[in-house]
Amino acid sequence: MSVLIFAELDEGKLRKSSQEAIYYGAKVAEQLGTSATAIVIGQADDSELATAGRFGATKVLHAADSKLNEPNGMAYATVVAAAAQQEGTKVIVLAKSSLADAMAARLVGKLRAGLAANVVELPDLSNGFRVKRSIYTGKAFAYTDLTADVKILAIKKNTLAVEEKDATASVETFSPALNDGDFGIAVKSTDKATGDVLLPEADLVVSAGRGLKGPENWGIVEDLAKALHAATACSKPVSDLDWRPHSEHVGQTGLKISPNLYIACGISGAIQHLAGVNSSKVIVVINKDPEAPFFKSADYGIVGDVFDVLPRLTKAVQAL
């Protein structure tokens, strides 16, 4: 009956978003009077996997077949379905990501499970199984009843404030039968920024728009991001103009993020941009136009020239 959490690895370490998912899953397990088990796929040391206990998992199922080294939503769904069956799981929890989303959708088809995406609170179990999820790209919420026997919750970042405890999880090797049909997609190459803070996982984000006037001016944005250990993001026009890679575009048709702090520099704040960032905890807007609509949705605002303000903010952060 245990709650099963799909936890992802990045370079052999549990992803931060997956730590949040484990913590959330353990809370749901408490509500249900059961335990939390994490399923981890890929190569990792037992000592790293045992840290899932810090977030509330009592057990980790580790599937380390070398065929699973490449992220593969279909094959991973087969593994998670087998783990769910072994554990008698009725609730599966995961943090949204390019891999987890692909995996979860296949899982819905396999298990006829009801999936709620962008869940923002713990479920309400007082009358059935009701979750609050973000819809209309952050413009509204839907209280949704999950009526299937198995339920899948894909949580949004910053759903709960994680509290770590001093505990370790037991680690068991998990070797379910794999399905040859799941390996029909060949990964030819991967092109990924390394060493930077991953935008979807970042607690702090510094974002900039056309107000920066050109890609050659991004240094001041990167300097502030570096001082804060923040990720960088951009508006749609900036990605359309190829000033920045598409993976940095936040907004209605780009990434939807919910960091603790979002600093928008030279972005006017069109409703499509707000949709992607309005669930950030704190929003700072820096714009030389006092009429920029973004100020209405901000917590802190500075009317000023980004070329003057950003370097000063960077210095102030460095002085902390």
Binding site: K188, K192, S247
Partner: peptide, 13 residues
């Protein structure tokens, strides 16, 4: 396909 922080090239029948 877009992935976190980048993209991957895939081939499938």
């Amino acid at each position: 396909r877009e992935i976190e922080g980048g993209k991957e090239s895939l081939e499938a029948r």
